[in-house]
Design a protein around this nucleic acid. Structure first.
Lengths: 249, 249
DNA sequence: CGGGGATTTGAGGTATATCAATGGCCGTGG
DNA sequence: CCACGGCCATTGATATACCTCAAATCCCCG
């Protein structure tokens, strides 16, 4: 059974021009009429409630989605293993790139809070991309950006301490919020400690402890899911911090 | 200064039709004349010696490369951190996908042994892809395959023990060799223990010890870089093995 | 045949997982 | 409105996998 997100709501055809994410979204850099062609393929936005699935692992791949508001997480189930959280998606980010050219979605994507997403049928998007070099470029760019994000993640998981992982995680979120016009210093974590731990390859208790320590040191202030970064420099110091652990030779 | 790989050697224009990798390579599925157009943009193959760089981090992105023979590794340097090995490339695999749509290469790629690569100027490839939907599809497929590979890697780094990482690593190599027509049971590791350790997020001593233990248990036979997988099932058992460690709740 | 990197092996320390119990938050229902 | 229950988060105590340091040996290459 397909997830049945509410297909109501929202002002009929979306208008990218008016969207606050315009400057960060997929159609970035399109000419005006190109933009209108692009808008034409966007389906009526979907509303998701917390915990609701946008795509389920194994479903046939049909659409990309752009997050309009709210946030989501992707997790991948592997046989005999625990689920692994692989992504958090914020507004303006594209869901589904890792399934392009594949038959099925290779991870489930679930809303972490109430969210809206724009649905883009991929075949139509591809047809359009055929005519619009700009759009093609944007697609490539999004995919390779994701590749690099994943690689940075691999670096993080590979060689860093719990402190460094958390610091990088917080800085990464901060940066993404800043880019979207939100405060980079003060934001709400829409994911649970358990999600964070899973994402960073730590035990949830460790996440809790490290955050507590950061707080003691005056680096952050955290109350439940409300996060305030007090000393970005310290965090950057931690994140950048050379080696020490898990060095190879 | 650009790396200056020997531009001699090899039979003038390469012939994909005759290439043993034909069935696994980028131009897979192209019609005959499309294939010829594709061949036309391939530069004279480059020969690389062990340790020689194919691309250096930060260089402007201009080409994709397909490995013809030999193997290479990609590593990414991050400020204040040790280099991180992010990939090993085997024949038929495409180097440079993570830089598409970007100005510069975001990692260095170095030959682990004598190697040949086909050079594909990306702008010309893109022009060609504009006319060949098949080729476009292949490009997408390669990129998303890479995305998924990276994600599997993240899972591996995130939640698994050293034994599981090594087992997965060996099985992964085995599978890739099999797919290329080499023996999946008996092969030569072209990378050092240190590279493996770095790639897997372990200390090099740990790699050595785990391999020794696998050998004691009769799962593998290893002598220096010559590797024989004796008991694939055991390895798969290890790799798949549920949880235990680093579980999240 | 010699030298230097690569690999192996050993001993000890530590970061982090695991187990366990408590405390806080929030939505639900009386 | 308050009480209840479940989930989420915190905190402590303990176990352990893996890193680090150190030294010996192997092997490749000149």
């Amino acid at each position: 059974m397909k997830p049945q997100p509410a297909r109501r709501s929202s002002p009929g055809v979306p208008r990218c021009e008016r969207c606050t994410l315009h400057a960060r979204c997929l159609p970035l850099g399109l000419e005006l009429d190109a933009l209108h062609s692009f808008e034409a393929i966007i389906q009526v936005p979907q509303a998701l409630k917390r915990g609701q699935a946008l795509v389920r692992q194994g479903e046939p791949f049909e659409n990309l989605y752009v997050v309009r508001s709210g946030s989501l997480k992707q997790s991948v189930a592997q046989p005999g293993q625990r689920d692994q959280v692989t992504h958090f998606y914020l507004p303006g980010e594209v869901v589904g790139l890792d399934a392009i050219g594949e038959a099925e979605c290779h991870g489930s994507v679930v809303a972490l809070e109430s969210a809206f997403v724009c649905e883009l049928p991929f075949t139509r998007l591809e047809d359009l991309a055929e005519q619009l070099p700009e759009l093609r470029g944007q697609l490539y760019r999004c995919m390779s950006r994701e590749l690099r994000r994943d690689q940075r993640m691999m670096c993080l998981l590979s060689g860093r301490t719990a402190d460094q992982r958390l610091a990088s995680f917080l800085l990464g979120l901060s940066e993404r919020f800043r880019a979207r016009g939100f405060s980079p210093f003060c934001f709400r974590l829409s994911m649970s400690r358990s999600d964070i731990a899973n994402y960073l390859g730590l035990a949830l208790e460790t996440v809790s402890r490290v955050l507590a320590r950061f707080q003691e040191q005056g680096t952050i202030a955290v109350a439940g899911r409300e996060m305030t970064l007090l000393d970005i420099e310290s965090l950057e110091g931690l994140a950048r911090e050379g080696v020490g652990l898990r060095g190879v030779n």
